[in-house]
């Protein structure tokens, strides 16, 4: 019997496969393709205190082995989420992580306080790394002192374990990671998307209405692996790694680099059964590699 279980901040996941924020709605869409209870966890679309309409379209551009998106946190707001999604999420047997975004420290705090009251939520992921909104988001994630402040204040109000999602658009992700660890984060997730741009040379216009967007997909995997490894050396709290995961081999690589669990994002868009497939492929791959306990792999990278 292969043991796929992992534990993060006291919460047990039946396997390390978590769907990434913004790529899985609130779970309903993909529950039509497979029973999403097979997943280790799901992370909700980024939620804000008030509803947001997001950015103008086009919001997506395809680039080699990747995509740029600029959705801009379109979401129905936390109240509507709690009212309309709680019953569904309570009926699913998986860890539910609410991704929370804001534009001021007060706003983040109010959002964290409110989401803490939702019984369908097991953990909170603080999004201090959204590249697609004008105010807030990434502004908190690229500067140590503001990252420290927002995490410290949010932690005081969070009644659930607090994961902080980091941006790769910084000069030293290890420093930001250490800062949020010291400020009280229970875990770190990384990486959010990498700032990018696509241009149509014929029209001389950017493809995205927002001009810039965030890059994700297989193209970013080497960067995400490196940052997972760097951060795992810098902090003691668990890491949830993500960036371009499309197959079980990728999951093992992230865990060897130091991740305790992983998130799958862009792959959901081009394989609606990705979560189900990856959990199955992971079991087969571990059998093939004669590994009985997945968590033994965490941080097992051999250098020289």
């Amino acid at each position: 019997m292969i043991d796929l279980k992992v534990k993060i901040a006291g919460i047990e996941f039946k396997n390390p496969v978590i769907t990434a924020s913004g790529t899985f709605g609130f779970g309903r869409e993909y529950n039509r393709f497979y029973d999403i209870s097979v997943l280790g966890g799901i992370c909700t679309k980024g939620l804000t205190l008030e509803p947001r309409e997001g950015n103008a379209a086009p919001r997506i551009a395809e680039t080699p082995s990747g995509i740029l998106n600029s959705v801009g946190l379109q979401n129905p707001g936390i109240n509507s989420f709690i009212q309309n999604e709680s019953m569904f999420l309570n009926s699913i047997d998986t860890v539910v992580i609410a991704n929370i975004a804001g534009n001021t420290i007060e706003n983040y705090c109010a959002a964290v306080e409110k989401i803490s009251s939702a019984d369908c939520v097991d953990m909170i992921e603080l999004n201090i790394s959204c590249p697609n909104v004008k105010e807030g988001g990434i502004a908190f994630g690229v500067d140590c002192s503001s990252a420290e402040k927002v995490v410290k204040e949010a932690k005081k109000l969070a009644k659930k374990p607090l994961i902080v999602k980091l941006s790769p658009n910084v000069s030293s992700i290890s420093q930001i990671a250490k800062t949020v660890e010291n400020a009280g984060a229970d875990a770190i997730s990384l990486i959010n998307t990498i700032g990018g741009m696509a241009i149509d040379y014929k029209t001389k216009r950017p493809i995205l209405a927002n001009i810039y967007g965030g890059l994700s997909g297989p193209a970013v995997k080497p960067i995400a692996l490196k940052m997972t490894h760097e951060v795992s050396k810098a902090v003691k709290i668990p890491i949830i790694g993500m960036g371009g995961i499309t197959k079980a081999e990728d999951i093992l690589e992230f865990m060897i680099a130091g991740a305790s669990a992983i998130q799958i994002g862009t792959v959901n868009f081009f394989d609606p059964n990705a979560g189900f497939r990856l959990v199955n492929e992971l079991t087969s791959l571990l059998k093939e590699c004669k590994i009985d306990r997945l968590k033994d792999l965490i941080g097992s990278l051999i250098i020289n």
């Binding site: 869409e29 379209a57 997506i60 998106n69 609606p272």
Partner: peptide, 13 residues
């Protein structure tokens, strides 16, 4: 322009 096609990603608005 679309990605998931099933309502999850919010890019085709």
């Amino acid at each position: 322009r679309m990605a998931c096609g099933v309502g999850a990603c919010l890019v085709c608005t």
